[in-house]
Nucleic acid binder design. Sequence first.
DNA 1: CTGGCTGCAAAGTTTTTGCAAAGTC
DNA 2: GACTTTGCAAAAACTTTGCAGCCAG
Lengths: 141, 141
Amino acid sequence: MKETAQILREKGLKVTPQRIAVYNMLLNSTEHPNAETIYRALEPTNPTMSLATVYKTLDYFKQLGLVQELNVGEGSSRYDAVVKCHPHTVCMQCGKVQDLFLDELTEIHKKVKEELDFQVNCEQLILYGICGDCRKNKIEA
Amino acid sequence: MKETAQILREKGLKVTPQRIAVYNMLLNSTEHPNAETIYRALEPTNPTMSLATVYKTLDYFKQLGLVQELNVGEGSSRYDAVVKCHPHTVCMQCGKVQDLFLDELTEIHKKVKEELDFQVNCEQLILYGICGDCRKNKIEA
DNA sequence: CTGGCTGCAAAGTTTTTGCAAAGTC
DNA sequence: GACTTTGCAAAAACTTTGCAGCCAG
């Protein structure tokens, strides 16, 4: 696996501890954290880290295609280091956000192009519902 | 067509000029306005209308299923009086947001249920791209 | 060194809240 | 008349900005 430092350098960014920390946190997490969550996770190990830097860093990363911003209807944006367009499920009970990969979407792109003359670049599909765990807990309760 | 006043009454809401105005504006527009836009559109005819009331009204409507909130990645939320879950296209050039109806999504719901044990209630599919008009203008320019 | 990066605090946006006055039923 | 709803202003929540000092290359 490529070094985070090298990836940043290739994108023309200076390599700083803050940037490495943010990117690694996103790579090693599946929870799609928001800026605040990233900040709080990194604060203990990077005592000088500031929330503004997290925002600035995420903004750079987003523009350089290193991360994807995701808004599932909460107040704040979540971030995902998986950059390729892919759907997400959002559990309306526990709030968990999970990745998902579906082939069916390419067909939809084609159809929309033909029928509406709309050229799709990227899509965001958010499936709201109740995850298996929460359904189980509901029945037990 | 059912009277707006009657719809509100059936939902257990008191009928006020502000609520009628907001709901009618959403019904008669296809632009998926945000709270600010609604407010500015109604201000001339409803001089006492306030932005806070627009927000409160939209919040009631959302909870009662009269409108749908839509976040396409701008700072603010847009609102749609078409309540049934349906996809939207967002033109990355002109910003236009359009409705779309696709049957393919029911299949996706079924697949996600079977493979991930995730029960989908509602989905939000946003297709980002360039609309026909903008592509035409680009070629001409 | 030098230009980009950080961290702070202040400001900007969007949305929510508290409460007195007004309006609905 | 009882109880909501409104509108104002203040506050909250999230994000961006300005700038002095710091750090990577």
